[in-house]
Computed example of a mutant assay.
Amino acid sequence: MLPSHPWLCIIMYISTTRLQRMQHVQRLLDQLQPDASPQVVCAPGTRQPQDTIIIFTGSFNPPTVAHLALLKQAQRYAKAQLEPTHLYAAFSKRTVDKEGVERPLLLDRVILLQDLLCTRLPQTGILLFNRGLYVEQAQAIRHSFPKVKRILFLMGFDKIEQIFDPRYYEDRDASLEALFNLAELLVVPRGSAGEDALAELLQRPQNQRFARYVQSQPFDPAYRDISATLVRERGASYQHDITREVRRFMRDTRAYDRPVKRADGSEVDIYNERIQYLRQRLGPVS
């Protein structure tokens, strides 16, 4: 069943090839159950992790030029290593502190990031996790990909503050010991939080024993204040913070737009119409 309005038909149109890609990704997402033990799968076209891997987990809602800059910084770090090092962006079906984010669909965000990385960072893969905590993601990697020798998580300063925050744990130190037995952290500044703020965090008595597992990475100050939240909320005012691929996605799907008024005064949520369109072709989507 197609949308009843011709202009919606134009917006909703998705090629057969793209629908097949979306169907493949949705099948993988369906395998990931947030309440199951830690799980990870490779998105289509991503090679299985091995050797040393760097993982940048995010909601990418939407991916900004700052996300790309972080990945490029990780790529430079990888090239400087003395051992093979591979880079991955990653999504979780359960993201800590972002459980309420429902649109655009995770399916749409995965496909968009695939398109973006294919053009901008073609050697970067995508991993899909069922759980949001880094320790759970590290456990999933170790269980599923035994050829991985070393795991590094790439993150901004806001994330490492979260990692050391006791309110996220029943037993913080035991959880951190479990994490650092499996992985290390690469931290880049965000906003005004630079190397001094990271050093101060790591020098706190309760954190000192974990400091050796954390490395600071430089980051161009021009990207520090870029926010996906502002792009979502203010759209056109922040177009310079996203690439043409993301601008096209936002224009074509209206994922962040408010409902549109019809001539009769009723409203239509164009992105919700897209969801219904996908459900008619793919079945349940998430």
Rank of each mutant, 00 (worst) to 15 (best):
R27L: 15
T17C: 14
P63S: 03
C118K: 14
A78M: 09
D30A: 15
L87H: 02
L87E: 06
E136S: 01
R103V: 08
A69G: 12
D51V: 05
G125N: 02
T119R: 10
R76Y: 11
T119S: 15
D115M: 08
M22V: 02
L121H: 15
K98S: 05
Q114K: 07
Q23E: 12
G58W: 03
Q20H: 14
Q81P: 07
R47H: 12
A74I: 10
L117R: 09
F129G: 00
C118L: 13
I111V: 15
T85Q: 01
C118A: 15
P122S: 06
I53L: 06
S15A: 13
K98E: 03
L105N: 05
H67P: 12
L116F: 02
V96W: 05
Q26C: 06
V65K: 03
Y134I: 04
L133T: 13
G100F: 14
Q73L: 11
V96S: 06
L112D: 00
Y134E: 08
N61I: 03
P122H: 01
D97P: 10
H86F: 14
P34K: 05
H24Y: 15
P34W: 00
E99I: 02
V101I: 15
L116V: 11
Q20A: 13
N130F: 06
Q26P: 03
F56D: 00
R21P: 11
T52R: 13
I126W: 06
